[in-house]
Each structure stands twice: as C-alpha cells, then as structure tokens.
Design a protein around this nucleic acid. Structure first.
Ligand SMILES: [Zn+2]
Ligand SMILES: [Zn+2]
Ligand SMILES: [Zn+2]
Ligand SMILES: [Zn+2]
Lengths: 159, 159
DNA sequence: TTTGTAATGTTATACTATTGCATTTGTTAT
DNA sequence: ATAACAAATGCAATAGTATAACATTACAAA
C-alpha cells in the first residue's frame, strides 16, 4: 500500500476477509505475538464490514454467535489488535476499523463517510512530515498524529 | 493568528482570560448569537487553563462555585461554544479547549503534550489542502478534518 | 399582549471504558 | 516431565462520557 483508498461497495468481501485473516496470521507470526482464537474472532467481526464498529457492537455480535463475553475482553483484544496494527482506533467516533494494509510505523489518515459510514485510509507521508515540521518549529516533538477526515465518499456523492 | 503556537507556561494568564472574554463577546455580537451568563461561565472555566478540560471537570468547578448544573447543561453550552468557534473539541481525549484565535472556517491542528497536558494550535492550510487533494483523488469530498497530534512540548522536552 | 423561538431545568438513561483480582493457558528452564 | 513464570482470560463491579424526552422559562419580534 502506497497512498490510500476507499472501500468499493461492489468488491468481493468474502475474499477480502479471508485475505485479512491470512494477513493477520502472517503478521503475528512475524512479530512473535499470539493471535488467539478470541482475538481473531474479534478481528473478523470488525473486519466484517468496512464501517466503523463500536466495542459494544462487537459484543452484540459475539453474543449472537454464542460466545458471550465481557466488555473488558473486547477492549483487551482491541488493545492487542491496535498494538500490532491490525486495527485502527477512530477517536472521533469511539469506534474501530480493521486495517487491511501494512503501514509499518507510518501514521495513517482515515476518511470517514458521513453518509454510508464507510471508512477508508490514506498514507500520506507529506502530511505527517508537514505536521512534524510545523510542530518542531514550536519546539513540539511529535509522537503520534491522529488524522480523521469526515466527508462524503465517491459512491455516496453520486447518490 | 497565521500559523500556530504552544502556550508558554510563564504568560500572564489573568490578561489571557480577559482577552478571551472580550473576544467571545465581540464574536457573538458580530455573529448575532447569545453569549449567556452560563455559556460565558463555562467558557471561562475551560479557558482558565491551556490544558484539555473534560465536561465533568467543568461540572465540578461549577459545583464548587455554587452554580451546580446537570451534565446536559454543560454539553449544550459546549455545543454552542464549539459551533461559534470559541472552543475546540479534542476527540482523542474526550475533552475541550478554549480557542483564543480567529480561524474563520479554517481547520485547525491541535498539539497535545503528553507530559504537561498543555494544548497548542496550528493552522496549516497546506495540511488541509494536502488532505483535500488526496481525498479528492479517491472521490472523497472532505467536510471536516480532525487533526490531533500528541507529543511533548518544548517546555517539557527541556525537563 | 400575543406569539414564537431560543435557552434552560430536571430526570433518567444510554453508551464507552477501566480497575482489581482470581483463574487458566501456554512457554521456558530445570 | 514438572516446576516456575508470564501471558491471556474470566468475572464482577464501577468509572467516565454523552444524550433523550419532556417541562419550563426567558427573550424578541409582530
Ligand atoms: Zn471488503
Ligand atoms: Zn491501516
Ligand atoms: Zn459513503
Ligand atoms: Zn483555535
């Protein structure tokens, strides 16, 4: 992934999720961390759509699937998934989105469609650089930029 | 205000708050909206520091001042203050910061010091432009970018 | 004054997230 | 193998953030 994209409504989502799972497995092996059944289950739930998913939405789905769990369980799994880069937190929505990419340690910019709820990603080093530079001029040492852009996606613009 | 700044710890804060109040009064007159006592009181509380302030922090202060209020009261005032540009919401902290500037409709980038909790502002049209352009290439029409950068401010870097 | 709108009050509730401690599971070293 | 340790999970309670619904009051214009 070089620059970014917004999920197309017509894509083969079965395949999309399958790829996400493979990606997660490989990534966790390489990082030497444990992708437990529970963590994978929660990743699948979040990855089951390209829309922002709340922690309690995940809980609901788990309950429907018969694997009832406590909130803290979900939050712990989310912490893990975020730490390894398989999930992004969306601060402005108190929600989460599965990440299908490999950003390494590069910050990401999220595109959030107000109309359909879809979430896309950009990876713009220029933006990160500009922020670091401007902050640096004020003596501010940047740790982690949160960039979340609300708007309307191409598909919803048309309609 | 052209580009940005981070609040200096040593500044004359009395004067700083007084300026904020004048700014608020003028702005509300010009906009033809009502800056009620309550709204002003809440703005003053938020503006009483350059750190992020939570809604329930505001409530606590109000209680101490004898003007006990319900959460919804604070949230309504905050909605108002945000809508006229006197307060910025900090999504990543679920908190708020008073705005001493006049951005017009230009988006702002917030600098949040992890060490002291101080919050500064940047106004970087280049960042906004870069986001709009990159989003536009994906057919995404930008409404409102949320840019919040955590890190360590100059003062805390030294220490 | 009447009338309509904006602001506030009141109560309850919804939604989001963490703490603390007990237990289990998996890994590593003997 | 098994002891010892660390990571992950289970469980219950609670903390923290935000809104809904409806009644009332304050203000401004007609
Ligand atoms: Zn998909
Ligand atoms: Zn991503
Ligand atoms: Zn859309
Ligand atoms: Zn500002």
């Amino acid at each position: 992934m070089t620059s970014g994209s917004f999920p197309k409504p017509e894509h083969d989502h079965q395949r999309c999720v399958a790829r996400l799972v493979r990606h997660a497995e490989q990534l966790c092996i390489k990082a030497g961390v444990r992708l437990t059944v529970q963590r994978l289950a929660i990743l699948k739930i979040i990855g089951s759509s390209h829309k922002a998913t709340g922690a309690y939405d995940v809980l609901e789905v788990m309950a429907k699937q018969g694997q009832r769990a406590a909130p803290v369980t979900v939050y712990r799994a989310l912490d893990f998934l975020i730490s390894v880069g398989l999930v992004h937190r969306i601060s402005s929505l108190n929600a989460f989105i599965a990440c299908h990419h490999s950003h390494g340690s590069n910050p990401v910019q999220l595109l959030i469609c107000k109309a359909c709820g879809g979430v896309g990603e950009l990876e713009l080093p220029a933006v990160t650089r500009a922020l670091k530079e401007a902050a640096g001029k004020a003596g501010f040492s940047v740790d982690e930029p949160v960039v979340e852009v609300t708007g309307v996606c191409a598909h919803c613009c048309a309609a």
